[in-house]
Design a protein around this nucleic acid. Structure first.
Lengths: 333, 333
DNA sequence: GCGCCGGCTGAAAGCGCTTATGGTAATTCG
DNA sequence: CGAATTACCATAAGCGCTTTCAGCCGGCGC
């Protein structure tokens, strides 16, 4: 231990010990060509023996860059955000920067924390419905910001997965199975992603001349899906195909069907979203999103903006992929 | 947009506009009692209209604290690390600090990145086999460090889940089912956690007078488990009970068994570790770890050390919980 | 009327670093 | 051999903040 008492060496310590100025130390350690090879070696050697690790606070202040990027997301439960963050972290690190994270999970002071974060980074990503538009705009006013899976705010750049189109494809696929009665589980108001999914669900049904049911509003967890499905599947005229807002909800539906003795897909078809790990063993038909790519693209955009490249308000919609497994029914012709 | 050109307001701008010195601004915005209420209100008002957001670099340098803590982990695939990080982030935020993350995933310059991280935080957590002992020691020499799920390094504080004890309990449970031939899937060398699990597996078998099989070394993914299980279960004298290093591997085993037409648990019993979301629909017997608590405890320890409380080299082992589901066999007795 | 004290504020130092700017010795060239 | 480069290094300014210290001013007691 003793980490608490031993004050870490500063650039001054190195300079003194090596018999040079701090400017030379700085240059030597950054491989500047303005320093003689002999001096450089000596400085590097001293730095090593002194275990010198530059204080980033000093650097940040001096060169006006943090060499860090932030990301704000609602939660880390479920693989969705973890994957996005992973893609983000990977790309950010490739650009030589560190990653700051902030999970807002309904914290009352989330916006204050986000502002604080903004004061520590060169740019940041804001995901989902975490921060009020007003605050997002304030942050974007002083730092490059990219919105991920979030409704647009002014001209701020954004990246989304193509929820609507994939929902249409999914719904059309189910229509192809011949199902008549549909249900949508999830709250379109809760997340822009779910909003887009419901929109696609609706438009596909409408295009086929079917009645469009209202969404069954429920949370995003397995438990929420389970509970909602129990109520729904006990009805006399129960739906034949349940389109769930994400895989967690779909897993809850599966366990509810099991509990009620209903076989999937013969008596009820179920689909999810995200293609999480559990989807495969559960044989769940779902939609795969390019989660890592979402994060990676956002990181690159930020990096370009930070470097001052004059790129304008980009808005990208990434394609998704329908993954059909057993839960939606035997594949038709 | 325009985030690139508009230079954010500094404390000087606020001071000038409010007609006070920067010292007063600083005090006013921190609610110091040394400033008159009237002045404070005026300063706060000006700060708002100027959209002043303090640069954290300046603060960090001035008060010698980063108000940030780091965490280094191998990867974010699978829910394990995500959960730990979530517990960590939550507690760190409660202490008013930000969180820096670093995923090393076999990056060649991981240690350099970790050193860099160390220069941006007040303390940090290092998980798993990410960083060489030598580097860990160097970091711990200048910052408080807590090791998580990592073999000890010197006197550096550490927190672990009780892998060995729970592995013993799990193995005893399987012995209670009457199985004769066991296998362990996972590489004890890859992670200290797996090492502990294999150790418990071994000691329980040894205590029962059984032969202890060598571990079947495989990766941590579903695919790795699948592949390893295919080879293993095709053998004429195949094992009856497969103890897997984690749930992902166990899921791979389940799908392999399915592929080979072997029923679980009648023909082969399978167990996992971590109780990830997919474990429930897969009816997987597994071991639940207090993942969030691991992260939260580490955060609190760091916080205490940073505040200078003279606490010594603590080492804690957190208890785990056996979760029995169908995959290990019909429950005996 | 004078000295004191307490409430409030400003001036200034300093945190650790980067980066012009300037200066000196060693080299080159006319 | 003197002047003009060149190669190298030190000095110093400045990044945006916190915090110590000193100072000002009005009100109090004597």
């Amino acid at each position: 231990m003793g980490a608490e008492d031993r004050r870490p060496a500063t650039i001054y310590d190195v300079a003194e010990r090596a018999g040079v100025s701090i400017a030379t130390v700085s240059r030597a350690l950054h491989g500047s060509s303005l320093v003689a090879a002999k001096t450089r070696d000596r400085v590097v050697e001293v730095a090593r023996t002194l275990r010198y690790n530059p204080s980033q606070a000093g650097r940040q202040l001096a060169q006006g860059r943090y060499m860090a990027m932030g990301i704000v997301f609602p939660d880390l439960a479920g693989p969705y955000y973890a994957e996005v963050i992973l893609g983000y972290e990977d790309r950010v690190a490739a650009h030589g920067c560190s990653v700051l994270i902030l999970a807002t999970h309904r914290r009352p002071n989330a916006e204050e924390l986000a502002m604080d974060l903004a004061g520590r980074v060169d740019g940041m990503v804001i995901m989902g419905r975490t921060i009020a538009d007003r605050v997002v705009a304030r942050i974007a006013d002083q730092r490059p910001v990219v919105l991920l899976a979030r409704p647009p705010v002014g001209e701020i750049e954004s990246i989304n997965a193509d929820n609507t189109a994939s929902a249409e494809r999914l719904t059309e696929h189910l229509l192809g199975h011949g199902y008549q009665r549909f249900a949508f589980l999830g709250d379109p108001r809760e997340s822009p992603d779910v909003g887009g999914r419901y929109a696609g669900f609706r438009s596909a049904l409408a295009a086929a001349g079917r009645r469009v049911p209202r969404p069954i509003r429920c949370g995003f967890s397995v438990a929420a899906g389970h509970e909602a499905a129990l109520a729904l599947l006990r009805k006399p005229h129960r739906p034949q195909a349940l389109v769930c807002a994400n895989d967690e909800v779909a897993l809850g539906v599966l366990s509810a069907a099991d509990e009620l003795g209903l076989s999937v897909p013969a008596e009820v078809a179920v689909t999810g979203w995200d293609d999480i790990l559990a989807a495969r063993p559960a044989r769940l038909t779902t939609v795969r999103q390019p989660m890592r790519e979402l994060g990676a693209t956002a990181a690159s955009w930020l990096h370009e903006r930070i470097l001052g490249e004059r790129v304008g308000g980009r808005h990208e919609v990434l394609a998704t992929e329908l993954v059909t497994r057993a839960s939606c029914g035997e594949h038709p012709g």
